[in-house]
Amino acid sequence: MSTFAKIGGITRLLANSSISKVNNTCKLRSLSTTPCRRELMEFFDDEKNWGVQEVKSGRSWKSDELRLKSNTDLHKLWYVLLKERNMLLTMEEECKKETRLFPSPERLDKVEDSMKNLETVVRERNKAYHLLETGEKGERPRKLETNVLGLHYKYKMSEHPIPKHLNTKWKKQYEFYKYDKEVEMFREKLNEKNYLAKKKQHRREFNHVIGLLNRFPNMDMEALKQQYPEVDIEKAKNSRKYGGHFEPK
C-alpha cells in the first residue's frame, strides 16, 4: 500500500518539472506506462513511414524463442502481431488503391510467420496439457472416410446437437460411399491410371540409372542405390542397354 502511495505521489510530482529532479534520486522501479491510445490511428503506420520507399524491420519470432515465453506473454504478443498485421493490410490496401508500391512488403510475411510460430507453440502446450490431464490430445478428431467417388479423405469430426440418424441436414451435406457400379468402374480406371503412371516412372528411373552407369562406370554404387532405392542395379547391369557399342573386355 505504501509503495503504491509513493508511486502515485511521484507520478503526480513528475508533472511538475521543477520537483521531478529531486525524485530521480529515489530508488524506484521503472514506471510502467501504457502507450498512448491512438485508437483508430493504430490502423496506420507511424507518420514518418508514410510515403517512404523502404521501412526497416527486424526478423520474425522463432518458435524456439516463443517456447521460452509464458502463456500471458504469448497472449499479449498475439494481439501485438494481430494489430501489426491489420496495420500492414490497411497500408497495403491504400497503396494499391493509390497505385503506389507498398514499402517493404516482407513485413507482412514476417508477421504471418511469427503468428504461425506462436500458434504452433500454443498448440504444443495445449496438446501436452490435454495429454497430461485426459490422456487425449485435445485436437479436433479426424477419421479416414470414403466419399461418394470412392476416394479416401480425412473427415473432420464435429459435435452435433442431434444424433446422426435424425440429422437430415448432415446426411445431405456429407455423402459417404455406398456401393455403386459406375463408381466401381471409375475406381478401377483410376487405379489403372495410377498403376501405369507408377510403372512408367519406375521404367524411366531404371533407364536413367543404366544411362548413368554407361556414362560413369566408376560411380559410387552406394550413393546411386541411395538416390534410386526402387531400382535394382544388378538387373540394370544385366540389361542389354548396359555397356557401350563396343566389345566387352
Binding site: L40, F43, F44, H75, W78, L82, R85, N86, L89, T90, E93, E94, K97, M115, L118, E119, V122
Partner: peptide, 11 residues
C-alpha cells in the same frame, strides 16, 4: 483466446 480475424480500414 487467439482470434485470427483481420480488419482493414479502407478509404
Amino acid at each position: 483466446f487467439l482470434p485470427n480475424f483481420w480488419l482493414k480500414l479502407i478509404k
